[in-house]
Design a protein around this nucleic acid. Structure first.
Length: 276
DNA sequence: CTGGGGACGGGGCCC
DNA sequence: AGGGCCCCGTCCCCA
């Protein structure tokens, strides 16, 4: 069986779509909350120490209120109402370019999107909510666009990508997808092309060495925000992802995936192969 | 086998 | 409608 197929199969079983029955991994204790002084090295207090919230140069906004639309992702890492929520904006002046540093707590709950949302929520007294899923939008136009995502693929409104034939019920999603076939943003250094300008921006950092995202705990800097996010989890004393079969726990979901792919799946009665 | 990091793509949301 | 930004996730490589 081809490895890629196996991986996809495993992942499909291990991480069913939203709304499906309980996943094989179980969130453990509330992450990033120290159970006591004995746990870990106390870095969390360091990370969470109150600091200026001024990374957003244009506006000094407070942490946003809990937002149901985003809660599942964020509550996995922190309590949005935690009095410890803070944001550190120190600068590192090492070999890498000047770098904003992010405390773990603040990193997960005060991303730009959350700030924007809270801001718009404060501005707009009335939000337009989707009758199907309850998500709210600032304008009826945005809501109308969102509603397209609820159409069935069988819908007459569905359209296919002229390049690859993939079907979309949402026209904005289709438009976005079509762009992925048009690699017009080309790297001057190595010639690699990208569909979107910010993908090229990120790629350019691999040439320039610029690392704008720094960890406020260890000072390590990253060129990619997603990689910093993953790095933050490695500082956690808690392992949030648990193998349903052998109960071994992992700090990152990708580690659990790898676990399923390797030890836990290579079948024997003693293994903890998923799917039974 | 696990842990960690680099690079990147898809798609959602806001303006 | 389009651009910009961001999150989530994956793949790959290496220690």
């Amino acid at each position: 069986m081809p490895r890629s197929f196996l991986v996809k199969k495993l992942k499909a079983e291990a991480f069913p779509a939203a709304g499906a029955p309980a996943p094989p991994y179980a969130p453990l204790e509330p992450p990033y909350t120290l159970p006591g002084p004995a746990a870990g090295d106390g870095y969390l207090q360091h990370c969470l120490a109150p600091a200026g919230y001024d990374t957003d140069k244009k506006q000094g906004l407070p942490p946003p209120p809990p937002d149901p639309a985003y809660a599942p992702g964020h509550e996995e890492y922190s309590d949005p109402e935690s009095p410890q929520s803070s944001f550190s904006a120190r600068y590192f002046n090492g070999e890498a370019a000047v770098t904003d540093s992010y405390s773990m707590d603040a990193f997960f709950i005060t991303d730009g999107r959350s700030r924007r949302r809270s801001e718009s929520q404060r501005r707009g007294s009335h939000r337009h909510s989707c009758p199907e899923c309850g998500k709210t939008y600032a304008t009826s136009s945005n809501l109308s666009r969102h509603k397209q995502t609820h159409r069935s693929l069988d819908s007459k409104m569905a359209r296919k990508c002229p390049t690859c034939g993939k079907a979309y019920v949402s026209m904005p999603a289709l438009a976005m997808h079509v762009l992925t076939h048009n690699l017009k943003h080309k790297c001057d250094v190595c010639g690699k092309a990208f569909s979107r300008p910010w993908l090229l921006q990120g790629h350019m950092r691999s040439h320039t060495g610029e690392k704008p995202f720094g960890c406020s705990h260890c000072g390590k800097a990253f060129a990619d925000r997603s990689n910093l996010r993953a790095h933050m989890q490695t500082h956690s004393a808690f392992k949030h992802y648990k193998c349903k079969q052998c109960e071994k726990t992992f700090a990152l979901k990708s580690y659990l995936n790898k676990h399923y792919e390797s030890a836990c799946f290579k079948g024997s009665e003693h293994s903890c192969a998923i799917g039974n």
